[in-house]
Simulated scan of single mutants.
Amino acid sequence: MRRSFYLCLGFICLLLGLIGVILPLLPTTPFIILAAFCFSRSSKKFHEMLLNHRLFGSMIREWEAYGVIPLKVKCLSSSMMIIMISYPVLFKELAWWIDAIMIVTALIGLVYVWSKPSRVLSKSPS
């Protein structure tokens, strides 16, 4: 039962990640990483497929091994977060608390993304 749950959740996350490639509102990277996590718990075949994927494979391997978010991904995700909340906050008449929720959510996302290393830190020879 648990394996089936993770398999279904993996496919849902993979689908959302692929939609995120086209729609700027959905972030691709977190959904693909979550799909890889779900597949690692449910299907070795699909997990290996993502690990060997030409676009996503290296990102997933670096995340799984070292918790790395590449600088390019950090910059893109940060830009998208800022752009996506800027329009409604600046140009829409929303309640102040809705603006506050959007800003706090984006700040939490930005802090999390930028708290992760951008590349694998290798040991320096002593």
Rank of each mutant, 00 (worst) to 15 (best):
Arg3His: 02
Phe5Asp: 09
Cys8Phe: 06
Phe11Ile: 08
Phe11Thr: 04
Phe11Ser: 05
Cys13Tyr: 02
Leu14Asp: 12
Leu15Thr: 12
Gly17Gln: 00
Leu18Asp: 06
Ile22Val: 09
Ile22Gly: 00
Ile22Tyr: 03
Pro24Tyr: 00
Leu26Trp: 08
Leu26Cys: 04
Leu26Ala: 14
Pro27Arg: 04
Thr29Lys: 05
Thr29His: 10
Phe31Cys: 13
Phe31Lys: 04
Ile33Cys: 02
Ser43Asn: 08
Lys44Leu: 09
Glu48Met: 06
Asn52Thr: 07
His53Phe: 05
Arg54Ala: 01
Leu55His: 08
Leu55Gly: 04
Gly57Met: 04
Met59Gly: 07
Glu62Val: 00
Tyr66Met: 09
Ile69Met: 11
Ile69Asp: 09
Lys74Pro: 04
Met80Asn: 11
Met80Tyr: 13
Met81Cys: 15
Tyr87Phe: 15
Val89Asp: 01
Leu90Gly: 09
Leu90Thr: 10
Phe91Tyr: 15
Phe91Asn: 14
Leu94Ile: 13
Trp97Glu: 15
Asp99Tyr: 12
Ile101Val: 11
Ala106Gly: 10
Ala106Arg: 01
Val111Leu: 14
Val111His: 05
Tyr112Glu: 05
Tyr112Phe: 15
Val113Lys: 03
Lys116Ser: 05
Ser118Thr: 15
Ser118Asn: 14
Pro125Ile: 14
Ser126His: 04
